[in-house]
Design a protein around this nucleic acid. Structure first.
Length: 376
RNA sequence: GGGAGGGUAGCGAAGUGGUCAAACGCGGCAGACUGUAAAUCUGUUCCUUCGGGUUCUAUGGUUCAAAUCCAUAUCCUCCCA
């Protein structure tokens, strides 16, 4: 059964929406945060732990799984769900982000993108058709169109020709996509430019995808202001009855700002990466547990948190694990950080329900930034 | 008792007359991270009122100039008795 989306409610004071993703007889409420599991694993977490923290959809990556173990192996295993023992919904990114992180502009042609394999330097070639074919074999529930994800520094001229090509790539991918059990999403690009976002959104939605995402955001130090503009310039042209996905975001405040601007789902590596680097989200802001001051703090990371790490372990112990580079520390912090974002989304949904989302935002900023948050 | 080598910043270790407050590694202290080339990367680590001050086991000496050369002391390691 193909995954589907139902829009339930629209906030009157903001563009926020409440809805649900329907999959396998289960409902996953939106707005939602999706943890990233690039290599068919949310780093350090078992599928049981992923569910325990309350995550719904998780991400995997086409590029990485194409290289290893190869889409044929995953297919032979019976698809991603069986391969990794996860029965919740899985979204695969198309490899578009790797166009940004691995390829050089000159490696991008109408046909596709030339990559240097980051494992051994081999030259590889990925096309929209190939990306869809791989995602089909991986058996994800949501496949993403293969796009170019340009850097924040890209000029208006470059972006213009880039989004036109990305739209042609989206059409090519859609043409070869024939898996009735897999949704296919289109990706809107255009940097912080109103005309380009509008153009990209209108042309991409004409192709009638199952959902739409806003891409090319939060790259290489793009300002938050530009990110918010990118969302604001895109959503007016995105259909209301389809899932809206802001790719690669992330930061707690950005999740709130994204929802206010009409986004339904988000994904980001940041909670798990920060965890591996010793950082923890708390209501009162992000803390670096590696800091000396936590060495004898025998208290949970966040008194108000209901996660496994906070229920059973202290800052001092987790700090010790992180400092000693023990994987259990990364695991506890990953559980905590994802749980923090999942609870943040729960609170956001509650506030939408109550019509107090903007007040919730103020309260969050007051606590998390000590009131000193300024959009730049 | 005889002989050889050596003592450099928190630790290990380069440096053997000026470009040396002294490479590099570790450890320490911070910072960054937004569709994961990311358990990674960056900064900093003698003192300082940022003018400068005090260092290379100790003391004395040679020299315009010493971590580097000489003398003595001291400690460590190894070898022979």
């Amino acid at each position: 059964m193909k995954i589907s989306f139902k829009l339930d409610y629209k906030d009157s004071k903001t563009n926020a929406r409440l809805g649900k993703v329907l999959f396998n007889g289960k409902e996953y409420p939106t707005p939602m945060f999706m943890p990233v599991g690039t290599q068919a694993t949310v780093k350090t977490l078992s599928p049981e732990e992923i569910k325990e923290v309350g995550s719904g959809i998780i991400l995997a990556n086409t590029y990485h799984l194409w290289l290893r173990p190869g889409e044929d192996i995953v297919q032979k295993a019976g698809g991603l769900h069986k391969f990794m023992n996860y029965d919740g919904p899985i979204l695969t990114d198309s490899g578009g982000y790797q166009v940004f992180s691995l390829a050089k502009p000159k490696d991008i042609s109408e046909e596709g993108v030339k990559f240097k394999n980051h494992l051994n330097g081999d030259t590889l070639f990925l096309t929209p058709e190939k990306s869809i074919e791989i995602q089909n074999k991986l058996g994800s529930d949501i496949a993403m169109s293969f796009d170019e994800c340009p850097p924040a520094s890209a000029s208006h001229d470059y972006l213009k020709q880039s989004i036109e090509r990305t739209i042609r790539w989206a059409a090519r991918g859609k043409k070869v996509h024939n898996n009735p059990n897999q949704a296919l999403f289109g990706i809107i690009q255009g940097g912080p430019y109103e005309d380009l976002r509008k153009y990209s959104a209108i042309e991409t939605t004409k192709l009638n995808f199952d959902g739409y995402s806003i891409g090319g955001v939060a790259n290489d130090g793009e300002s938050k202001l530009d990110m918010y503009k990118a969302i604001e310039y895109s959503t007016p042209y995105m259909p209301e009855d389809k899932l809206r996905y802001l790719m690669g975001v992330g930061d707690p405040i950005d999740l709130i700002e994204g929802v206010i601007r009409g986004v339904d789902i988000f994904d980001c590596v940041i909670p798990t990466r920060l965890a591996r680097h010793g950082h923890a989200y708390t209501k009162m802001g992000k803390i670096n547990l590696k800091n000396n001051q936590y060495k004898d703090k025998f208290e949970p990371i966040d008194e108000t948190c209901d996660c496994y790490a906070c229920k059973s372990y202290t800052k001092a112990y987790i700090r010790h694990l992180i400092v000693e580079n023990e994987t259990f520390g990364a695991r506890l912090l990953s559980i905590h950080n994802i749980r923090f974002l999942v609870r943040l989304m729960e609170n956001i949904r509650e506030s939408i329900q109550k019509g107090t989302l903007l007040e919730f935002r103020e309260e969050f900023v007051q606590n998390y930034y000590g009131g000193k948050y300024e959009v730049k």
